[in-house]
Each structure stands twice: as C-alpha cells, then as structure tokens.
Design a protein around this nucleic acid. Sequence first.
DNA 1: TATGAATGAGCTTTCATTCAT
DNA 2: AATGAATGAAAGCTCATTCAT
Lengths: 208, 208, 208, 208
Amino acid sequence: MPTIKEQASAGSDRAEQKRAEILAAAMDAFAENGYHATKISDIAGRLGMGHGTFYRYFENKLDIFVSVIDLIIEKITSIVETDYPTATNSAAEYHQQIIRLGERIFQVFRADMRFGTILFYEALGVDQALNSKLETMLDMIAMVTELYFKNGVEKGFLRQDLDTLVLSKAITGVLVAGVRDVLAAKDPEATTKRWSKAIAGLMIGGMG
Amino acid sequence: MPTIKEQASAGSDRAEQKRAEILAAAMDAFAENGYHATKISDIAGRLGMGHGTFYRYFENKLDIFVSVIDLIIEKITSIVETDYPTATNSAAEYHQQIIRLGERIFQVFRADMRFGTILFYEALGVDQALNSKLETMLDMIAMVTELYFKNGVEKGFLRQDLDTLVLSKAITGVLVAGVRDVLAAKDPEATTKRWSKAIAGLMIGGMG
Amino acid sequence: MPTIKEQASAGSDRAEQKRAEILAAAMDAFAENGYHATKISDIAGRLGMGHGTFYRYFENKLDIFVSVIDLIIEKITSIVETDYPTATNSAAEYHQQIIRLGERIFQVFRADMRFGTILFYEALGVDQALNSKLETMLDMIAMVTELYFKNGVEKGFLRQDLDTLVLSKAITGVLVAGVRDVLAAKDPEATTKRWSKAIAGLMIGGMG
Amino acid sequence: MPTIKEQASAGSDRAEQKRAEILAAAMDAFAENGYHATKISDIAGRLGMGHGTFYRYFENKLDIFVSVIDLIIEKITSIVETDYPTATNSAAEYHQQIIRLGERIFQVFRADMRFGTILFYEALGVDQALNSKLETMLDMIAMVTELYFKNGVEKGFLRQDLDTLVLSKAITGVLVAGVRDVLAAKDPEATTKRWSKAIAGLMIGGMG
DNA sequence: TATGAATGAGCTTTCATTCAT
DNA sequence: AATGAATGAAAGCTCATTCAT
C-alpha cells in the first residue's frame, strides 16, 4: 500500500525512480571508464533507452557526474555528521569511539566499491568546482576527527601538546590510503580488520 | 671527453634537448589546466613553435603526459631508492633516519609545486594504465618505508608485533596528505616543519 | 438558429475554438521570438496544455506558422478586397478614397502589432513557399492599388501616361516602410497621421 | 610580379583569399537555402573541403553570416556615402542627382542578385543584432536621402513644407520594393528603367 | 481527447593527428 | 627539421514528432 506521500506524487515518483536508475547506470559507467571516456550514449545504452531521454532527467554530463559525487559525499557526510564525539569515561572507551568512526567510513566504501573508485580515481581533474568539493569533503572528515582529538586532549586521554589540526589531516590521509588498499585487496574483510588494528596501535602507542 | 652514448647520438643531442624543453612546457600546461583541457597547440604555443613539430618528439598526447608522469616518478624514485636503511646504533639515530626519508620526499614536491598538482590532481582518471602506474609509485614508497620498519623491528627499535605492511602504506597516505596540505598552505616552510614534528611524534610515541 | 455549417460541425465547434486559442498563443510566441526560436512546447506552455495536444490541432510546426500567416493575410485581404474603387465625382473625392485605403491597411497593423512583426520580420527566410506567399500578398495589395490608379487615369483624375503597375508596387513599398516606421514609433498615432499627410502630398502633387 | 604588400604578407594573403572563397560559397548557400537550412558542411562541400577547415577561417555559423551581411552592407554604404548632395544650379540638375543615387543603389543589387535575396529575404529573423543592423542600413539610406531633400528645400527646388523625414523613409521603401521587383523581373534592365522613370515622375510632379 | 515520456535525426563545434611544402 | 593548413571522427545537446496510456 503506497504511503500518502507516494500517492500524492505518483507521477513525480516515477520520474524520481527513473532518475535514480540513470544515476545508478552513470555510476557504473563512470566507475568503469571515468568521466571523459563515458559518453551520454553509454549511460543511456546501459538502460536500453534513447540518449535524448537522458536530458529529460539531467541538465548535462557534468550535472549527472556532480550528482553522482554528491550522492557519495552525502553518504559519507551523513555517517560522519551523526557521529560527533560524546562523553566518555575512560581512555579505552575513548579509543573505541575513534576506531568506530573510522570503521563506519570504511564501511561506506566497502558497501559500494564504485564510491572509492569514482571519488579517488575519476573525480579529480574534471572540474575546478568538483576538485574543491572533494577537498571540502576531506576537510570535513578531518574537522570532525579534530573534534575527537580536541575532546581527547581536554579529557586528558591524549597528549596535551598534540597538534590536533595536522594529525586530523594525517589520519584522514591514512583513511584514504586504507580505503584504497581495501578496494584492491583480495580479502577486504580481513584487510579492513588488519588496518583497524594497526592504526589503533599506531594512534594509541606509536610504533616504538 | 664525450661518453660513448654521447658520441653515438651526437646529432640527437639537440633533439634530446628539444624534447626536454617540450616536456617542461607540457608540465607547466598540464599542471595549470589538467590533461583534457590542455591542447597540443597550447604546449607548442608556450615554446613559440609550430604544433606539428610536437609530433617529431612525441608519439601523441598521452605519450607526453606519461612522459611527464614518468619524469616526476623518476625523481621521487631516485630519492627513495638512494635512501635505503643503513646501520644505526640507537633508537634516536633510527628515528632520525626515518624522518629524513620523509623530509626528502617532501622536498621533491616542495622543489617543484607542479609535481604534486599533476600527480595528485591531474593524473588520475586519465588512463587506466596511468592509474596503476601511480599506484605502483605509492607502493614503491611504501615498500621502502616497510624496509625501514622491518629494520627497526629487527634492531629492536620498534615493536615486535608491528604490522609493517599496513603501517608503511598508512604512512605513505600520511605523506600524500601532507604534500597536499603543504601545496595549499600559505607558509609551506612552516607547514612542512609542523607536519614533520607531528608525524614524528605520532610514530614514536602515538597520541596518548 | 445555427447555420448548416454550424450544425454539421457541432462537435467540432469546441475543436475549432481550441484551434483558435492555439493559433493565438502561437502568434504571440512567433511575434516575440520568431519561428526558429519558438518551440512547440512554448506554444503549449502558454496555454497550460501538454505539447502533445498541439498535434491534434496542427500537422506540424510549419503548419501552424503558415496558419498564422494565413490568418494575418486574410485580415488584410478582407480589408483590401472589400474596398474596391467606386464611382467618384471629383478629384478631391478620389484622393480621399485612395487615402482611406491606405489608412485601412495601416489600421490592421496598428490594431495588432504582432501582424507587422511576424509578416515583416519573422516570416521571411523560413520557407521558400512562405516567401512567395508573402510576395503574393504584397502583389495583391499592389493589384488593388493599381485598380484605383487605373480608375483614376480613366476618370482623368490622374496623369494619362501614369505607369500604374510600377507605381502601385512603389506605393505598396511605401506602405510597408510606413508600417515598419509606425511599429517602431513612440507615438504611433501621430506617426500614422504624419505618414498619411506626407504620402498624400507626394501622390497628389509630388515634391516639387 | 607580386606587389610589396603581397610579398610581405604572402601567407596572410593566401588565408585572405581562402576566407574570401568560403565567404563566396557561403553567400551562394545562404541565398539559395537561407540561414537555418544551410549547414556548415554545405558550405564546405561547395568548396570540396573538410568542414573542420571552415572553423579555421570563421568563428562559427553566425559569424560568417554576419560577415556576408556586412559585405553587402559595405557595398551599399560605400555607394551611398560617396554620393552626398553637391551644388546644383537648376531643378533639372537636382532631379538628375537624386535619380542617380537611386540608380546606383539599384546597380549594386543588380550586379549580384544574391544581395537582395539575402538582405530582404534571408537575413531577417536570424538574430536580434542582425535585425537592427539591417534597420540601421535602411536608416542610413534614408538619412542620406533626407540630406538631398533638405538640400532641395533650401535651394527652393522642393516644397518648403516637405516632411523630409517621412518622405526619405518612404522613398527608401520604394527603393526596396523596386529592388524586389527587379530581382523577380524577366528583363531587369528594362524594369529598372521603368522604375526610374516612374519614380522620378512621382517625385517631381506627383500623380496628378 | 489529452498527455508527456521517449526518441533519434541532425546539427554545431573541437582538436588530435597527418602530411605537403 | 619545422610548419601549420587541412581533416574528420567524435561527442554533446536540442527539439519536433510519435504513441502508449
């Protein structure tokens, strides 16, 4: 039984679904061949539809690429934003909190392998505005990470002289490297765990 | 006295120089506008030469872009490869060695800002083969880093249970993040030092 | 009491009215944007109707444009055709007759500014057949004008050696120029009068 | 033997000539099929050249059309501008002067039948800027004509109360009608003379 | 009868690459 | 060896028209 909202906007729902289908096909195409090598007719062809139809749902090629990127960023943002640091009573609890944040972000990329491919391989160098959008996303992750670190410093779980700004950016870099490695790994599950453990060890006690 | 190679290619010395000039111009162009937005005639125009001449020195557009990438990778590789871990007597000395490796790599990117721009912003998504080439370069850095780590573990300067493989990749990720940050920083000098210190601290003693 | 024709097409009365509505909307659109810049969906949009509906009332885009032109030409033709030269007793009366013809035609264009815009600005260069249709309309005006002139010559109100054919075409050209000028004028009323007076003077006594 | 200028700009002369060739082919195409029905490949095809070559010599389609129009307007302008009213001693001489102006303009259109076709049939409704350019050209003709008329009024060859502004526009309208008629005439030569005579008669003595 | 989603022919424009000079 | 005019494949995008609902 359709919800009221579904009934009210039956026609627009159809369109919304079609738009989603095209978006999905575009995501496949972009992940496989990148932005420039993907033709509008490729995307349309994957759905067996005429390429003119594409333009009923998206302004142009850049528009759909940005939409794809936005979709991915939104997923990551929603994870990160709902996961602000909360009160913790022990260092152990605090460490758990940080590790959970990292694992959640990992999870997003593991859930859909195309995300990483598009974000870290195909999205750069397409458009100036897109570049800064990606930068902004990484900055946002770093900012939330820094919140955790600052919180840890305040609570005394972390060193008082910690350069939280640089370290949050560094850890974001680690995150990206980890995602890339997991994307390429034969056993992503095991690889993920290995990264979690190694990074936790690094952060907590260093390498010495 | 000219070397054998120089004698054999006496006539091609000029050619070699011209090739280098074109390569330099291409590097500027690619760093400024990216692969797709750079036209062969742009590169030729920067040298005041006819764009037909370009094809006497390079196969095609992808060829020169790969050559540019190769040039950059070569520079980094030469730094990394000449810097294999050597005997160290103390942990302090060992730490110094690692930090020096990182600083040398940083140095390459700071010496020529175009390197980072091309490698981390413009080179991705151009060509499948190029993507793997970049991966390979990062892997190579990670491999050398791992050598250091294994050496440190052996000598007892680092934890015995250290996951050297993952950590070397993670540290490479930190390196990339650092280079990006320095590229965008107002005061690259200071930023570089800040990163060095923060990362050394992280690696040696963790954040706790 | 409905006429036979009205009875026969009782059901199509609504259709006829809708056709007229679409025609009116098309006239606005064509006058504003010209033939090529006007989209079928523009016309439909002005009526808040689906653009597929358009094709129930008109064959295609050219069809409706021709219909618009025909409508305008019909209006002009009806004025001109009902205004054949009649008996006049004096030169003054005769002059009045000619001037009235001109003013009536002017009136048609002043009553609906779109007529002139479409006919003299937008209709040309669309279609070969349309070009000749416009020629034909101008010829028709010229022909009626010539009838007046011939009548004037016969009655002795005009010179015996008058080249009525050429002069009728020339006066038609004046008419077109006048309409264009009035279309662009700030005070169409005054401009119309000024033209009437000047042209009457020219025709009656020349410029000398 | 090439002139100095030809020697100095040998390369640019070639280009100039090619440009002229393309312009000529475009003029044929536009005159035959109008702006919208003419494809760039049509123009290129007429010269047996690749359509990409076109873009080495012209910005785009509108650019070459404007160039064609400008060429025509320039011809007419050069006639009109070099023919300003000069001192005349008698009414007869003055009349001759006016008639000569008209005949010269006629001449331009008779010399190349495409001029009239493009200007009066194909150029309108293509582009707003082009429309005003054509208006401006007609205005310019009218302005020069008015100069003659004002001169005639001053010298006493024409009526003192003459509405020179309106009449100059009217005569320009006659001119256009005449050109159109001659373009369509079987014997353009004879038709031209007939128009000259009839218009001269109208202007000098009216129709009465 | 009305609709608007779907279609694809058809156009303009770009630019890497070739090759005659 | 150097040039740059010529080329045409290739792609994005528009919109008149069709037709299933």
